[in-house]
Design a protein around this nucleic acid. Structure first.
Lengths: 246, 246
DNA sequence: ATGGCGTGTCGGGCTGGCTGCTGATCCTGA
DNA sequence: TCAGGATCAGCAGCCAGCCCGACACGCCAT
């Protein structure tokens, strides 16, 4: 059991705690130039904003004028329906770009999504016009943005894989593995998901109900695959967990 | 019934038939410069390829060296599991970029997905290195690519909305609306989805089974919402169909 | 202290997956 | 052009996974 650390790197992202002042680059490329974070920070009209957990960053229908780059914390993008139901479209991790879409698909437009701070959030923002100008002046900025969007697409598409699993047990397992990849920090016992997740939040993300999540998480815990302490989930062994697919 | 055409534009994409020689721009921006299609076509090492329906464009594990831009037809991206199960991650329409991800996230890498021609396909391809060089030389190329990726993200995220619907009936309805948006051509009776979809293919895309799709599509047909003629689905009235959500 | 939120549990009911089979349609090669 | 095989569509019956509604308890913050 102890020796099975090979392959874990897929699940251990850049730690989100500690590492003060370290501005991680998007992806894993060890580039020479400035990071996207530094570029956006340097734009005219740029800003650093801090948002408390649970507060809204933008509502659907708001005018889309700024671009956001997440520096610390997690953001939830969701669609809201008339029924009041809210569907999580993406859980963004650090160094994720968002709010970019509407600006680049052409004409000025409004937000589609509801963006709320899933944890306390620190982010760098800049006006869309500045970003556009920066791309035109320096092609490497375009490349950085492309990398950001690419990783966002990958993130989104693994979410689709998760959601197409038929039975809820598989969905939950798949979702936990995604969370390990995006928010996992290695710990003494395994990989801890650095988010405070309520069962309700998980249910909204994978299209289930609170009760079912409770039961399934209980099963996983009873089988010694995960540990839950004050809303923090620790996965002992992602590989063993992955065997749990139906 | 006849007068209810307002709002349909959301569902009627650029017609994929006819319009010979017309190279549609990505998105709806009426730009002055060359289109992405033209740019990629002009790169060194560029190529136009035609693939027959059902043939594979690339396998998972293949080295990722080229970038693809779909000119005609539809491409299915999917993940393959050891169990033999295959999950559709995206159905790409004309003017969609693909194969870009792995190239831009940093180091050289392999394909994640299985890409097969869902219809007879015509596409423009170019080596990743050429694309990269083009971006560095001309920032507007970067902007075009960003637009391409943006619309791809939107496409993917609406797919997530579809998949988080719990009951299969809603999922199917939602999926049909997505298809109308991406592959719909206006016809005399409504909007026809310009794909030849087997029930099995639909099931693999939305995480269901062939039998269930058969039953649910039958229900929709009996209720006078859709028409199916030799695997081509016509939605009479998307707005009425949208009311079918649970 | 207390109210609210999150967690754990139970049973009833139904949606939807599975198996097995038949008939229709499409494709291909002789 | 036709025949054969392969793929696709449709039907029924069975059963389980999961949603729903309801309730009790513990933890936390005000």
């Amino acid at each position: 059991m102890v020796g099975a650390t090979r392959g874990f790197s897929r699940y251990a992202s850049t730690p989100s705690t500690g590492a003060p002042g370290a501005v991680a680059a998007i992806g894993t490329s060890a580039m020479a130039g400035p990071t996207l974070m530094e570029v956006i920070r340097g734009l005219s009209g740029s800003n650093v904003e801090t948002i408390e957990r649970g507060k809204t960053i933008f509502f659907p229908g708001d005018p889309a004028e700024r671009v956001y780059l997440l520096r610390r914390g997690a953001v939830r993008l969701s669609r809201v329906y008339e029924s009041g139901e809210e569907i999580t479209v993406a859980l963004l991790r650090e160094n994720s770009l968002f709010g970019v879409l509407s600006l680049l698909t052409g004409q000025r437009s409004d937000r589609f999504y509801h963006a709320i701070a899933f944890t306390r959030v620190e982010m760098v923002t800049a006006p869309a016009t500045s970003v556009r100008r920066a791309i035109e002046q320096d092609a490497s900025v375009g490349l950085l943005l492309l990398q950001g969007l690419s990783s966002r697409i990958l993130q989104t598409e693994t979410m689709i894989e998760t959601l197409t699993h038929r039975d809820m047990s598989s969905r939950l397992v798949s979702f936990l593995l995604v969370l390990c990849r995006d928010f996992g920090v290695p710990s003494s016992e395994g990989i801890t998901i650095d988010l405070r997740l309520s069962h309700q939040a998980i249910a909204e993300a994978i299209g289930s109900t609170r009760v079912t999540i409770t039961r399934l998480l209980g099963d996983l815990r009873n089988d010694g695959l995960v540990q839950i302490d004050r809303k923090k989930i620790t996965v002992f062994d992602p590989i063993a967990l992955a065997k749990r697919f139906s």
